[in-house]
Nucleic acid binder design. Structure first.
Lengths: 360, 360
DNA sequence: CTGAAAGCGCTTACAG
DNA sequence: CTGAAAGCGCTTACAG
């Protein structure tokens, strides 16, 4: 039924060894023989049994994953990284029969230098590829360059280092993410009103890119005034209080949160009795955020399924390292999905929808 | 590094044959031996190499897929089914090393009896499982029952036959789909105005379920009046003209399309010069629909990624037939995603985002 | 350059 | 009930 290399060998009256060498592009095969094999394989629609190949090769491929998290464990960041790891694990399971091993390290967000150690340790263990979500790209960039020079393939997750020779970037297009949020706000306000934007300090370009996209799209609605951006210090309590003041002083019709602390802002909106008046738009989909969506305090969030990104990252590294196939683009953007009150159930981790089976 | 069955055998001083029998629950193994093997396997965290198992078994599993399409080939239905098949193909490729074969039949939508023939033909070829999108559930139901009695596993795609003994249903929750559309309309109209609903004849319960959900959610917005539903005959030309009349006579602030022909309605809205006034909401994501989203004629559509459904269906059948694992729920609902002007790029077939790699 | 042989992890008739 | 042997599709030293 299925064509095997043995059939090709028999057909050509040569040994399976030679067929194998020819097919794999190994040396020590007469060029004319190689051509014959290749031609016949093509004609017979031969597709090697990859599982058998891995079995025979007995090679084990190690791939590393370096993430970061906060010490304070109930942050949305933790859920985000957990989801990412779920995707990594799904890919690992799917590819373990093909000789793939995955080792994961989660470092402390406040100590970016830990990522350097993690990278070096993985390389020392023989990792041929590493996916890393850098908590501070500038700090790890030199180490990434060094490892790439040593032949380790590097994949950037969530935060790109575009000037490097990385295999690719897997993550969001943050400019587009900003545009989507502005479109949501524009739609909710029917083109009239004010929107306050809240930002935090961050070391990367993510926030400014989101703002760029947001400004661009919100500019299409001439009746919408943009308030801020207001830069808040990054503490739950203060965010809550600052939001209350903001609401009272500026009375915005909508609020756009660029990153993090969305729950605190939502709680402030609710406590100020503005849940029905203020349209709140932000990012990500933690359990807390889902519950504010349920109560219609948050109108919508833009979501980049982290599990899919984790899974895809491993698959891209595996495909390149075993079959030398590069990703079709060096920017592999996450699908930015819109989550609202009515479709939030599909984004709950324990929900029994197709996403449970995406990756089986 | 990885634990093998041979290691278990050596450890216990028995043969690999016995270990294999014990692990697979085959007869002719002393019960106490079986317990020892199982316990040790558990302790050593043994996971069988599934690829090697399939190689050794040499079994080939045939699974069938039965879809339908229109003769007129440029309908959105064709694109829908093509996407579904893309997902099927991805799963097939991924599982072909595990001995899976997939055979697909696409029947004529106007001849539901063709599906009966297709089902019987697949069963005659030895298909152990069949995924079917029934174009008329009543027509195929008896055949499905017969095949299930013969031990063929049946999976319903898009249209359920709940009273049958099917393995599961993979498709949308149409009531929820209606709710999501109403939520979008409610948001766009800020709770005030009128929305016209357009429906067509259909044989299933899909349209009425979408209407149920739509009515329920739109009821939360006391200032929104629902016009219709208007039942249109199903021809592109007439739909266009009927929509123009509807717009002139009723001047709705929004239009909700339950199923199909969204492009004709969009064109009518545009030609009537109402693209900026009327918010148009519907379903699916054909190339045509994407281009109306680009021009902001359509405000949003609800999308059930058909490729994911196709892929998941094959995986569910394969998992059950090879490892006897039932889907966790007999209703496997598609994630209902919201597609707008700004995030439409992620839903284009040729776009280079993560979805290209979902399934690798 | 080429082929016979052994082996990857697993299963399955076939003897016993 | 149990084990030795052969085999699934493929690769790889090892001879030649």
């Amino acid at each position: 039924m299925k064509v095997t290399s043995a059939q090709i060998a028999r057909e050509l009256g040569i040994s399976r060894s030679t067929v194998s060498r020819a097919l794999n592009g190994y040396p020590h095969v007469d060029e004319s023989v190689r051509q014959q094999v290749l031609a016949l394989a093509d004609k017979m629609e031969y597709h090697p049994n990859l599982a058998a190949r891995c079995l025979a090769k007995g090679e084990h491929l190690l791939v590393g994953v370096v993430l970061y998290a906060k010490a304070d464990s109930d942050s949305f960041l933790r859920e985000y990284m957990e989801d990412l790891l779920r995707g990594v694990e799904l890919a690992r399971r799917q590819l373990s029969d093909y000789g793939l091993h995955v080792e994961t390290v989660v470092t402390d967000i406040t100590r970016p230098e830990e990522q350097i150690e993690a990278l070096n340790a993985l390389a020392a263990k023989g990792a041929k590829g590493i996916a890393i979500a850098p908590c501070d790209p500038d700090v790890v960039a030199p180490t990434l360059d060094k490892l790439m020079n040593d032949g380790v393939q590097i994949l950037l997750l969530n935060t790109d280092v575009p000037q490097s020779q990385r295999l690719c970037y897997v993550g969001s297009d943050y400019i587009q993410a900003g545009r989507i949020c502005a479109e949501l706000v524009g739609g909710y306000l029917q083109g009239k009103g004010s929107v306050a934007t809240i930002i935090f300090d961050d070391r990367g370009t993510m926030t400014s890119q989101k703002l760029t996209g947001f400004r661009e799209e919100i500019g299409h609605y001439s009746g919408i005034e943009m308030l801020g951006p207001y830069k808040f210090p990054r503490t739950g309590e203060r965010v809550y209080e600052n939001t209350c003041s903001l609401i009272q002083e500026r009375q915005p019709d909508a609020i756009f949160m660029t990153y993090g602390e969305l729950e605190s802002v939502a709680q402030a909106v609710e406590d100020c009795g503005m849940a029905e008046k203020i349209r709140l738009v932000g990012f990500d989909c933690s359990q807390g955020i889902l519950s504010y969506l349920r109560r219609r305090v948050i109108s919508a969030v833009v979501y980049q399924d982290p599990a899919v990104q984790g899974m895809v990252s491993i698959k891209i590294l595996h495909e390149f390292l075993t079959r030398n196939i590069r990703p079709r683009s060096s920017l592999v953007h996450a699908r930015l999905e819109i989550v609202t009150h009515q479709n939030r159930a599909y984004y709950q981790r324990d929900s029994l929808n197709v996403s449970t089976y995406y990756y089986l």
